[in-house]
Amino acid sequence: NQASVVANQLIPINTALTLVMMRSEVVTPVGIPAEDIPRLVSMQVNRAVPLGTTLMPDMVRGYA
C-alpha cells in the first residue's frame, strides 16, 4: 500500500504548499504519492482543499 499526500489543514485556493500543510497517509483512492511531498513545496493549489482531503494531481498547479 502506497502512502498518498493528505491535507493537514484547510488549504485555501491559490495557496503555496508548505511541509506543515501536508502529511502522508495510506488512503483510497490513491492520490499524489507521499514521496513527491518535497516537490510539492511552493506549488499552488487551484482549489480549496479541506482538512483530510487526498491531494490529486489536478489539484496542484504545475504538478501533472
Score class of each variant (00 low, 15 high):
residue 36 D to H: 09
residue 27 V to Y: 02
residue 50 P to Q: 13
residue 55 L to N: 01
residue 43 M to L: 09
residue 1 N to K: 04
residue 3 A to S: 14
residue 19 L to Y: 10
residue 21 M to G: 03
residue 41 V to I: 11
residue 47 R to Y: 13
residue 42 S to V: 03
residue 38 P to T: 10
residue 41 V to A: 07
residue 26 V to W: 06
residue 51 L to Q: 14
residue 62 G to E: 12
residue 22 M to Q: 01
residue 63 Y to D: 04
residue 8 N to K: 10
residue 11 I to H: 00
residue 10 L to W: 08
residue 41 V to S: 04
residue 27 V to D: 02
residue 32 I to F: 03
residue 34 A to E: 14
residue 62 G to K: 04
residue 31 G to M: 02
residue 60 V to Q: 00
residue 51 L to H: 13
residue 47 R to H: 12
residue 50 P to V: 11
residue 21 M to P: 02
residue 31 G to W: 02
residue 13 I to C: 09
residue 29 P to L: 08
residue 41 V to W: 03
residue 16 A to S: 15
residue 26 V to S: 09
residue 35 E to T: 09
residue 30 V to F: 10
residue 64 A to H: 13
residue 44 Q to N: 12
residue 45 V to R: 00
residue 33 P to S: 08
residue 15 T to R: 06
residue 42 S to L: 13
residue 15 T to L: 07
residue 5 V to Y: 01
residue 49 V to S: 02
residue 16 A to V: 13
residue 49 V to K: 00
residue 50 P to W: 09
residue 59 M to Y: 12
residue 51 L to G: 12
residue 12 P to C: 05
residue 3 A to V: 09
residue 6 V to W: 01
residue 7 A to R: 00
residue 50 P to A: 13
residue 53 T to R: 05
residue 29 P to C: 15
residue 53 T to W: 09
residue 11 I to G: 01
residue 50 P to E: 15
residue 41 V to T: 08
residue 9 Q to C: 05
residue 62 G to C: 15
residue 53 T to F: 10
residue 64 A to V: 10
residue 63 Y to P: 05
residue 23 R to H: 09
residue 7 A to D: 01
residue 43 M to V: 04
residue 16 A to Y: 10
residue 6 V to M: 08
residue 36 D to G: 06
residue 57 P to W: 04
residue 43 M to H: 13
residue 16 A to G: 07
residue 20 V to L: 14
residue 35 E to P: 07
residue 2 Q to S: 08
residue 52 G to T: 03
residue 53 T to G: 05
residue 33 P to A: 13
residue 35 E to L: 05
residue 14 N to V: 03
residue 11 I to M: 04
residue 64 A to M: 14
residue 5 V to W: 01
residue 36 D to A: 07
residue 25 E to I: 04
residue 64 A to T: 15
residue 9 Q to I: 10
residue 18 T to F: 03
residue 60 V to D: 02
residue 59 M to S: 06
residue 58 D to L: 14
residue 56 M to T: 15
residue 33 P to K: 12
residue 15 T to Q: 11
residue 56 M to W: 04
residue 11 I to F: 00
residue 32 I to C: 03
residue 39 R to E: 05
residue 32 I to N: 00
residue 63 Y to W: 12
residue 56 M to Q: 11
residue 3 A to I: 11
residue 19 L to H: 15
residue 19 L to W: 09
residue 54 T to G: 03
residue 19 L to M: 15
residue 21 M to S: 06
residue 3 A to Q: 05
residue 10 L to D: 12
residue 30 V to T: 12
residue 20 V to T: 14
residue 20 V to H: 14
residue 35 E to H: 11
residue 37 I to D: 00
residue 55 L to H: 00
residue 38 P to I: 14
residue 38 P to R: 06
residue 39 R to V: 07
residue 20 V to D: 13
residue 16 A to M: 10
residue 19 L to I: 14
residue 42 S to M: 12
residue 2 Q to V: 12
residue 41 V to N: 04
residue 24 S to N: 09
residue 3 A to T: 08
residue 39 R to G: 06
residue 4 S to F: 03
residue 61 R to W: 11
residue 10 L to R: 08
residue 9 Q to E: 11
residue 27 V to Q: 11
residue 29 P to V: 09
residue 13 I to D: 13
residue 50 P to L: 14
residue 36 D to T: 06
residue 45 V to P: 03
residue 44 Q to P: 11
residue 1 N to G: 14
residue 55 L to E: 01
residue 29 P to D: 12
residue 43 M to T: 05
residue 52 G to V: 02
residue 27 V to T: 11
residue 28 T to P: 02
residue 31 G to A: 04
residue 35 E to F: 08
residue 18 T to G: 06
residue 62 G to M: 07
residue 49 V to C: 04
residue 16 A to N: 08
residue 25 E to V: 05
residue 55 L to P: 01
residue 53 T to N: 08
residue 27 V to R: 06
residue 49 V to M: 06
residue 63 Y to R: 04
residue 61 R to C: 15
residue 51 L to V: 12
residue 26 V to E: 15
residue 23 R to S: 12
residue 45 V to N: 03
residue 22 M to D: 02
residue 15 T to E: 07
residue 47 R to M: 14
residue 23 R to P: 02
residue 19 L to N: 07
residue 13 I to S: 14
residue 24 S to E: 12
residue 18 T to Q: 11
residue 40 L to Q: 00
residue 4 S to T: 04
residue 55 L to M: 15
residue 15 T to A: 11
residue 23 R to W: 04
residue 32 I to D: 00
residue 46 N to G: 10
residue 16 A to L: 11
residue 16 A to C: 14
residue 42 S to D: 12
residue 7 A to Q: 01
residue 20 V to Y: 13
residue 33 P to M: 13
residue 25 E to P: 00
residue 40 L to D: 01
residue 20 V to N: 13
residue 3 A to K: 04
residue 20 V to Q: 11
residue 14 N to T: 04
residue 10 L to Q: 13
residue 16 A to P: 12
residue 59 M to C: 05
